[in-house]
Design a protein around this nucleic acid. Structure first.
Lengths: 227, 227
DNA sequence: ACCTGAACACCGTTCAAGT
DNA sequence: ACCTGAACACCGTTCAAGT
């Protein structure tokens, strides 16, 4: 009857905790994650988690970061040979796919990289890729930020989940143009895809215009200090 | 010693509750809002709130909606006379300003309009404005959605608050390009503004290209069924 | 080092009771 | 109709105690 207070092999590890937390977030949402519930899922008592993480927020940060780690960044490799526009497009698509696969953690992710390593790696790679492609550093920073705005916004405020599935919610007297707002779920997913593609194309087209007109630098005038 | 269980004039009202909740969200963040704390702030006991709202989520929805209600929609008025591009620009700026003034409630707002009246009004006005300007309904839906993605994403994932204020967090060995990531707070705010302006301009420029090439309809060919 | 149960100060919500 | 206190089933986190 002697339940060990401490077994020779640790019952828990950061990885095991993150794995269980991710599964719980994906299956039942952020609200379902309590330290006690998570511990129960892992077969330990609540306070055990505090041997591996300082608090619950750190666990959720780790879950968010494991999603960031799934974003493909290979398009920013030096010897990739493709142009910034194609790289940005492929990055956005991969970025969004990673987030859309785990929608419930997006609110945590969308707040910014904080000190999460994979989140910082994403920001770093995109910035580096744009600078290498010839964008001035200030513009490269803007591009990284605005792409994050758009991608996280699209994953978070999905049209598909953002409107209620109830036609009586949209009185035509109040909202004369929203007659179609409560459409079938699969139609709504098409709206999300269409909006994302339309927005991404617009952003890339618009940035291409700005790229042509970017700071003259070494082209027109004899370059003014280019540190 | 007879404290009234029910005074002649109600102590609470939905408006008073929303007002107090908004103040609490703005000053101390979403996490500070508990039904008990909110009730205390209003000088009543916790359960009293349930006479006016079904649950806490409904209160937060109402707070979010009061922010949506501050978004200017006048640029979509019929007799406004300005083009869709100017309207979209002004809308985005006003939209973002409303959200940036109450950043802590944005995570609730960003999830979509749900059944919040002011949120639906925003979606309705933008859609209607684009259709009136000549956009096909499907495109108008996309535009409303993608603008929401971008604006809520920018308000939620602010660059200024999204990076930690600690230079040791960005080891150049790990993130070769993030040397500037922990800059002064006011510089970071400039990044947010720059990224928002750059992104908004790119979106509008890109949409202008798509507007020119939109469904030929009655212009080129003898219109193929235009229901 | 790593797990435990007990404990503290909280939660959201329900409900019978008051007026 | 609208407020109350008591109660229920939870929380996150700390800590002394075990091995």
């Amino acid at each position: 009857m002697c339940r060990m207070a401490r077994p020779r092999k640790p019952l828990l590890s950061r990885d095991r905790i993150v794995e269980a937390a991710s599964a719980l977030v994906d299956s039942e949402g952020l609200e379902a994650v309590s330290t006690r519930r998570l511990a129960a899922e892992l077969g330990v008592s609540g306070p055990s988690l505090y041997n591996h993480f300082r608090n619950k927020d750190e666990i959720l940060d780790a879950v968010a970061d494991s999603v960031s780690a799934q974003v493909d960044l290979s398009m920013f490799d030096e010897d990739d040979g493709r142009d910034w526009r194609a790289a940005l497009h492929d990055w956005a698509v991969s970025y969004r796919a990673a987030l859309a696969a785990h929608p419930h953690i997006v609110p945590v992710l969308a707040q910014g990289p904080g000190r999460r390593p994979a989140g910082l790696r994403v920001a770093d790679a995109a910035f580096g890729g744009m600078v290498r492609a010839g964008w001035p550093p200030a513009q490269a920073t803007y591009i990284g930020a605005l792409m994050r705005y758009f991608v996280t916004g699209s994953a978070l405020g999905s049209f598909a989940r953002g409107f209620v599935d109830d036609e009586t919610a949209y009185d035509p007297a109040d909202y004369p143009h929203l007659g179609q707002a409560h459409l079938l779920a699969d139609r709504r997913q098409k709206v999300d895809e269409g909006a994302f593609e339309t927005g991404l194309r617009a952003i890339l087209d618009g940035l291409a215009l700005q790229y042509e007109q970017r700071t003259p630098a070494a082209t027109v005038r004899p370059s003014p200090k280019r540190s």
